[in-house]
Design a protein around this nucleic acid. Sequence first.
DNA 1: CGGCCCGATTGATCCACGTCAATGCAAAGG
DNA 2: CCTTTGCATTGACGTGGATCAATCGGGCCG
Lengths: 244, 244
Amino acid sequence: MKATVVPINVVQLKSVCSSCSLRELCLPMGLSPKEVERLDQLIYARRKVKRGEGLYRAGDAFSAIYAVRTGFFKSNVILEDGRDQVTGFHMPGEIIGMDGIGTDHHSCNAIALEDSDVCVIPFSRLEEISNEVRGLQRQFHKVMSREIVRDQGVMMLLGSMRAEERLAAFLLNLSQRFVIRGYSPSEFHLRMTREEIGSFLGLKLETVSRLFSKFQEESLIGVQQKHIRILDTAGLKKILGQGG
Amino acid sequence: MKATVVPINVVQLKSVCSSCSLRELCLPMGLSPKEVERLDQLIYARRKVKRGEGLYRAGDAFSAIYAVRTGFFKSNVILEDGRDQVTGFHMPGEIIGMDGIGTDHHSCNAIALEDSDVCVIPFSRLEEISNEVRGLQRQFHKVMSREIVRDQGVMMLLGSMRAEERLAAFLLNLSQRFVIRGYSPSEFHLRMTREEIGSFLGLKLETVSRLFSKFQEESLIGVQQKHIRILDTAGLKKILGQGG
DNA sequence: CGGCCCGATTGATCCACGTCAATGCAAAGG
DNA sequence: CCTTTGCATTGACGTGGATCAATCGGGCCG
């Protein structure tokens, strides 16, 4: 037990949950230091995914869920006739892949929108360890439940909001998620295309583009390609709740 | 330990999972008889909900999930401005209330569309027992995951299908769920109004009504108020995948 | 540095669905 | 029995967002 620390160990140390900068957003959220140590035993594999590649695809056998460490993902479902629905965008600290638990096969694709890096969480080991670590069990259930609630929000958006409201809600949601991660809430880079935003929001890419221009004219935001500045949060919030 | 069985006990016996006719659709799905016996210890309370009443409301403290025994529920979310989005319809054997786990408060309303009856599943006891009964833990995770996958399907529907396709998908989905429960797949009674169908599908009630009439003219279905007969399943399936 | 290519923008037109409004119809209750 | 009440149906008309099409612009590679 000598305190010999070679560089490679430092790297390994930095990659466990207990020393991960995302631990308060991710699966370990709210766990005691002891509990997080148990998680460290579970999560040892990383996986890099290059921009445009899939972390998993619909139909793949399910074996693990994933925590996004760095990068950005979209998930989507593709129908036989080629129609493609983006069902979510995922940033560091978020857990993806839970769609596979029910049938042992993934039901959607998870595709990296930039070079990314995930922690692989082998699912059967997660179930084992969560039997011993009550906090972990509870936390995992919360993560799944929040995904269900998020989906309800998207249904609300798609089912009863006008195009303007959808985009405003989308921007405010991104902004909020960025600020939690320590990035600017008012200035960020969109990783997805107009078409992907449109697919997620149930709109065509031209409509998305026109709305960005409109919001810019109204000085609600500044847009330059994928670079967004939010100039008037209150104004965007006011758009929500106008219409239906 | 005398084998004295008084009527009241018979009633109690019939209401545990191990003798419930829904056990192969519900939480006990796939569990061994021994495992189901453990579930029996967990689920003892029933609750009746009259038509129009809420089982729970958005904001209510979360303490249990529920298995629908008899009747029919909708769940919905209501925005401050009064807009109301129906997020699902629930029939016997389905589990509801999982939206509350993440925040300890329910995020949507669950409202009975006819006089109904649910099994109350105290959530912290479910977590305890699922530590001992591995099959139960796994099954509960599957139930949550399937809810996530169902929600993805609704997003697909709302985000990229035309009105006709949405209604066809809705009818086919109901039909499928009825047949699993031993009812006719081709003839059933809608428990919800045109407005509720419209809210779920992201359409106005007039559009729903017109589409019912159109499908009837095309001999795909027979409609008489809330009574539906499906005359041409293949025809309805063909409507799916036309459009976008 | 110059050309290419993919995505974004913008305009003109169309149409699916929403809106507004009248009428129908069945179940409930006096 | 007739009235009431709450859906459901149907029609006429309006519009938000889709579609089709042209142009623009930035990043990348030779």
